[in-house]
């Protein structure tokens, strides 16, 4: 509908332009005032025989006077002469037909092409919009997946960190307990070693004192008695490699 109105408006515009262009020359090509006067004079002389006769006849003179005034009367700025209308209308029809035959299909094709291009652009825009929406959806889905994965990774990392912290704490506690146990064992070992050393030292001192006392108290009779007793023991016992 809009396309038809546009087409009619275009045709009328072209026809008006052609009419206005043709009317000017037609009007400019009309008879002059002098010619008109001469023609009226000739017409009056033929009608009444002479200009004096016209002048004598008041009615004829009045009519002749109106005709002359008609010659000097300016043409209508709106209504052209009839021949101009005919020629203009003919030119309009020719031009209109030519335009209907050649111009209108070209304009129609151009308009159709333009419409098709606009439609194609709109379709492309729709397609691009759909693609953009699909891409946006995919992006949002990927973003959601990424957020989910990130949350899972964070949770896993947090869990691993907690586990690692618990392991380290347990290991540290175990190390502390082991060190305490070891320290206690070392202390106990050192205490026992000190007691053993003290006991050995005391024994050495006691035995040393005993040796000195025994050595000082062993005279020749005691030595002889010890040797004789030894010989008697050897004679009275078997040789088992561990005599006393």
């Amino acid at each position: 509908m809009a396309r038809k109105t546009l087409r009619l408006f275009a045709a009328l515009s072209v026809a008006s332009a052609v009419l206005l262009a043709a009317a000017g020359p037609a009007w400019a090509a009309g008879e002059t005032i002098g010619g008109c006067v001469i023609a009226q004079v000739h017409y009056a002389e033929e009608e009444y025989g002479s200009l004096s006769a016209v002048e004598a006849d008041e009615k004829a003179f009045k009519s002749f006077e109106e005709d002359l005034e008609g010659c000097v009367e300016a043409p209508s700025p709106i209504l052209p002469e009839l021949d101009e209308i005919i020629w203009g209308g003919l030119a309009f029809l020719i031009l209109f037909a030519f335009m209907w035959w050649k111009g209108f299909p070209a304009v129609k094709r151009a308009m159709d092409a333009r419409s098709e291009k606009i439609r194609a652009d709109l379709d492309a825009a729709d397609s691009a919009k759909a693609d953009a929406m699909r891409t946006k959806s995919e992006y949002e889905a990927q973003l959601a997946d990424a957020k989910t994965a990130a949350a899972a990774i964070i949770d896993e990392a947090r869990g691993q960190a907690d586990q690692l912290r618990q392991d380290l704490q347990a290991r540290a506690e175990a190390d502390i307990a082991e060190q305490r146990t070891r320290a206690a064992a070392d202390i106990e070992s050192s205490r026992r070693q000190a007691i053993d050393d003290l006991r050995t030292e005391v024994a050495a001192i006691a035995v040393g004192a005993a040796e000195r006392v025994v050595g000082a108290s062993l005279d020749a009779d005691v030595h002889r008695s010890l040797i004789d007793g030894y010989i008697d023991d050897v004679a009275g016992s078997g040789s088992n490699g561990d005599g006393s």
Binding site: L226, Y230, V234, S239, G241, D242, G243, S244
Partner: peptide, 10 residues
């Protein structure tokens, strides 16, 4: 006596 020992010492 060889490897045998009879020890009756103080």
């Amino acid at each position: 006596i060889g490897d045998d020992v009879i020890d009756g010492s103080v």
